[in-house]
């Protein structure tokens, strides 16, 4: 690895840090939005009310059939048009991510909800609770506790997915690394550095998930 100059990383650290912050912030907001919307979609699908469940199923299957890049392009194009004026890249990207990840989260949550025993639902209904009460007080709390490891794993995937905002030049960690790489002519150093940073964060995340899966009894 002869004449590679790694000082380029050090020199651009503030800029890179800004990019990383954007990546993390985008991930965080998208996880929250994705889980909230995903839960709504899951409940719609399981509600037994045909128009709702059909809508949710169509939405989820449609989103899961197309690449994320296309969804990003869609929302970059659609959001300003729908609102009537140009909007910051960050918000278009955030909406795109929330809409995209919600489909994946809804599948996880749906499986989690279905894993709660029917007996629990019956117990709630026997005391006179309606559908939404049963979900809110009995099913969802149990479902979420079981699902936390998988939800976190999906969050790690989401973090990796945020690198795709590169295609709309939003200045996340990936885009910033790329800018530095090109302007300083240090492609090898920057991209390997980017890979290392992503690896450390994602690997640490998956170690955390493994700890979670061992449960409170470990």
């Amino acid at each position: 690895m002869g004449d590679f100059d790694y000082s380029v990383i050090w020199d651009n650290l503030p800029f890179l840090w800004q990019g990383l912050q954007l990546s993390l912030w985008l991930t965080f907001l998208a996880i929250i939005g994705g889980i909230v919307l995903g839960t709504g979609l899951a409940l719609m699908r399981l509600s037994g009310f045909l128009p709702l469940s059909l809508f949710a199923a169509t939405y989820v299957n449609l989103i899961r059939s197309v690449p994320l890049i296309l969804v990003i392009f869609w929302f970059y194009f659609l959001v300003p048009l729908a609102i009537g004026r140009p909007i910051g890249g960050f918000y278009s990207a955030l909406i795109a991510f929330v809409m995209f990840e919600a489909a994946y989260y809804s599948e996880i949550i749906r499986a989690g909800i279905q894993s709660v025993r029917q007996g629990q639902v019956h117990a709630g209904q026997a005391t006179g609770m309606n559908y939404w009460q049963v979900q809110r007080y009995i099913v969802l709390p149990q479902a979420f506790r079981n699902m936390i490891p998988i939800l976190v794993t999906q969050g790690i995937i989401l973090f990796q997915d945020t690198s795709l905002v590169f295609v709309v030049s939003l200045r996340d960690f990936m885009t910033v690394s790329s800018i530095v790489a090109r302007t300083e002519g240090r492609l090898v150093e920057m991209y390997i550095f980017a890979a290392i940073v992503y690896f450390i964060i994602c690997f640490a995340g998956s170690m955390f998930v493994r700890r979670l899966q061992k449960g409170p009894t470990a």
């Binding site: 690198s163 790489a181 890979a195 690997f203």
Partner: peptide, 23 residues
């Protein structure tokens, strides 16, 4: 598996396209 799973595909593609020919 751990190496290829924890790095985004985009980064991997860039490394293959831009970095590997240099190395």
């Amino acid at each position: 598996v751990e190496l290829f799973r924890n790095v985004p595909l985009l980064v991997q593609m860039f490394i293959w396209y831009f970095a590997v020919p240099e190395i």
